[in-house]
C-alpha cells in the first residue's frame, strides 16, 4: 500500500504532471509537492507525487560508504 515509485517529471500542466516511470509515461498529480520542475525526480504513490528526490543526497551517501574501509 505504501509503495511509491520514482519517476521523472517530463511536463507540468497545472497540478498534473506527465512523468516517466521506467520508460512508461503516466499522468500524476503534483498537488502535494511544492517547487517541482521538469527534470526533477519524484516518488509517486497512488497517482500522486509525495516527495521530491534529492539526487545529491543519494550520491553523497554512496560516496560516503564507498570511502569507508572495514
Amino acid at each position: 500500500m505504501c509503495l511509491a515509485i520514482p519517476a521523472k517529471i517530463i511536463k507540468i500542466k497545472g497540478e498534473i504532471a506527465e512523468v516517466d516511470i521506467g520508460g512508461i509515461r503516466k499522468e500524476t498529480s503534483i498537488a502535494l509537492v511544492k517547487d517541482v520542475k521538469e527534470g526533477d525526480y519524484v516518488l509517486i504513490h497512488t497517482g500522486y507525487a509525495i516527495a521530491k528526490i534529492n539526487e545529491e543526497e543519494a550520491k553523497e551517501l554512496i560516496e560516503l560508504w564507498k570511502m569507508m574501509s572495514y
Binding site: M1, C2, A4, S29, L32, H45, T46, G47, Y48, I50
Partner: peptide, 9 residues
C-alpha cells in the same frame, strides 16, 4: 485505506 502515505491523497 492506508497509512500517512495515502491519507493526504
Amino acid at each position: 485505506i492506508g497509512f500517512e502515505t495515502t491519507a493526504p491523497t
